[in-house]
Design a protein around this nucleic acid. Structure first.
Ligand code: FES
Ligand code: FES
Lengths: 133, 133
DNA sequence: AGAATACCAACTAATTTAGTAGGATATATG
DNA sequence: CATATATCCTACTAAATTAGTTGGTATTCT
């Protein structure tokens, strides 16, 4: 179970923003250069992060992105959850009459998968950007 | 970050084996039917689980698979790690001279990613099959 | 002998991922 | 105002991965 590069890029960029928090807006071009990430790809990643209200943007020259709240208030779970869908969820089957894993799951392992999912979520929610600087 | 169906199938099958632990070898055909998983696919999954020494097999009629140790001694981390590669690792870049994420990583976020990775691993290692029955 | 089982390799279709290309819109600054 | 620097937006593409199938071989119980 690897994190996608999308998540990884997003995380790295967010850590970068956290490090420069007091400097105000940082343009993506700077982050792309710092982290050696394709600018175009990073733009799309930040569109998602913005939609999830994890960053705010300012357009125009000397614009850029800032964290929407302090590095102590943003956790890793939110970032990964935004970029890679529900963090640590299972993709079970939903076919042939029986519905798996969703609302109506009747199979015997659903509580188990839920337990695992929650353990990971809890671990990620416990790590704030501040802890990663 | 979703688990692949491979991991999910593997987990479900392992939980199934744990539930029937005292019954001895269980053929894959039974698990495939129980869990509504394609037999051919499950076979390949079990090839991996066996290689990782999480299950033992017996060939021939009335053969099948058994857990290689008690449900209290097998953790979720081992299963996911076997099936989906290093659990919770990051896929960073390794290009243009700089090596990322591997031995020689010099970027500033490596400790951060490591911390996240370890938090997830620890959470998964803490859950045993026994806890999921 | 025959049935049931693990074991093995190659192939395929569908999906996802990572990345590119080519713009449009907004704003600070000279 | 002109220009450079930004965000923002959509569509396309190549590569990789995933999920699953097919068609077998080898082993062992009954
Ligand atoms: S199969 Fe996923 S919870 Fe039942
Ligand atoms: S980029 Fe992954 S650890 Fe440096």
């Amino acid at each position: 179970m690897k994190f996608s590069t999308r998540s990884t890029y997003g995380l790295r960029a967010m850590i970068n923003l956290a490090q420069n928090w007091q400097k105000g807006s940082i343009p993506l071009s700077a982050i792309a250069k710092n982290e050696n990430i394709s600018l175009g790809y990073l733009e799309r990643i930040f569109a998602v992060l913005k939609k999830a209200k994890l960053v705010k943007s300012e357009k125009g020259a000397s614009g850029g992105y800032v964290l929407s709240s302090s590095p102590g208030d943003i956790d890793v779970y939110s970032i990964i959850n935004a970029l890679d869908g529900e963090a640590s969820s299972f993709h079970c089957m939903d076919e042939g009459g029986k519905v798996y894993c969703n609302e109506k799951c009747e199979c015997s392992v659903e509580p188990a998968l839920l337990k695992i999912s929650q353990a990971i979520s809890a671990a990620l929610k416990n790590i704030k950007l501040k802890d990663l600087i």
